[in-house]
Design a protein around this nucleic acid. Structure first.
Length: 126
DNA sequence: GCCTTGACGGCAA
DNA sequence: GTTGCCGCCAAGG
């Protein structure tokens, strides 16, 4: 089995753990799996994601919060709608407020410890 | 078998 | 502070 599949599997696992109302970046995922330079590979992996995987790939944006893969959903508005439905503020430029909704794979452990953290800061300042 | 493109990121000028 | 360029791995033409 190619190592690329293993890499993709890790990516899928991380993406599947992204909580609703939160977003993460390709670079964060890549760094979490141990490949800082694999940001591009993350995108490549998500491009071939089977819909059966139930992967919230719409919660993955680039480092500036832009919905880079919006067109892979047919139209960025589709992805924006999904995010808005989860409480994520999406600007008209199809960008999300990373400062307010950025989720880091490392937080996975943090949430497990606290298990009571307010996921949505209503006072989020755009 | 070689070249170009791609859901990105970091560093340099 | 901003803009531009290069680099990484893989797949498709």
């Amino acid at each position: 089995m190619p190592a690329s599949i293993e890499f993709a599997s890790k990516v899928y696992a991380v993406v599947a753990l992204i909580p609703a109302g939160r977003v993460t970046t390709y670079g964060r995922i890549a760094a979490h799996v141990g490949d800082r330079r694999g940001a591009r590979m993350v995108g490549w992996a998500l491009m071939d994601v089977p819909r059966d995987r139930d992967l919230p790939c719409h919660r993955v944006v680039n480092r500036v919060g832009l919905l880079s893969g919006g067109w892979h959903f047919g139209h960025p508005e589709v992805m924006a709608g999904l995010l808005r439905a989860e409480g994520v503020a999406v600007s008209d430029e199809f960008t999300v407020n990373l400062a307010a909704h950025l989720w880091d794979p490392a937080d996975e452990l943090f949430e497990g410890e606290e298990a009571g953290v307010p996921p949505l800061p209503d006072g989020a300042v755009p």
